[in-house]
Amino acid sequence: MTGSEVPPIDLPDLDVSAIEAIEGVEPVRSVRTPIRLDYRYVPGRAAVTYLEAMAEKRILGQRDPDTGHVFVPPRGVNPASGRVLDEFVELPDRGHVGSFCITNVPIPGRDDLSLPYASCWIFLDGADIGFLGLVAGCDPDEVRLGMRVAAKWKPDDELTASAENIRWWEPTGEPDMPLDEIRGGRGA
C-alpha cells in the first residue's frame, strides 16, 4: 500500500465557519499561558517513619499481623485488604531482581545516569512486594532475573531523611536465586 492509497476522510458536513465579523481575520493558532502552582506534599504517617529510618541507613517495612505480609516501602495499609497497618519491621538492604528493563530514555533530573541503565523490580529479603530501583555497578547486559543486589548508600555525611539515600542497587556476587524462588511473576 502506498501513501496515495490512504482513504480520504468521508466526513459529514460540519458548519465551522466563523461569524461574519471575523471572516478573513488571520486565525490565532496558539497562545502561551504558563501555569505555576506550588504544592507542599506530605509524606504521610507511614512514609515519615520510613524516611526517618532511611537517614540511619535502615529500611523499614510494615507488617500485616493478619497475613504476615511485609510491605516496603510502607504506605500505611495492606493494599490487598485496605487494612490499616502500624507495625514496622526492619529489612536487610539486600534482595534480588524480580524483573528488569534496560532503558535508553533519560530520566528528567537524573543527569548522573549514563544510558543505558537498568531499572529493576527489586524484592528485599523478607518483603512480599517489590519496588522499582536502579541497578548499577555492573554492565547493564549482566543484569538478569534472580540476580542478588544490595543497596549502595550515599556517604554517611550526605544522608538525609530521603529515599535518595540509596543511590542505586549493585550486584553482591552471591549466587542467583533459584528460578522458582524469584518473585514478581509465576515461574518467571
Binding site: V42, G44, R45, G76
Partner: peptide
Amino acid sequence: SGLTEVELMAPLIE
C-alpha cells in the same frame, strides 16, 4: 498534614 489520602480514607471506608 500528617496523612496521605490512603491513610485518611482506609479507616473511614472500613
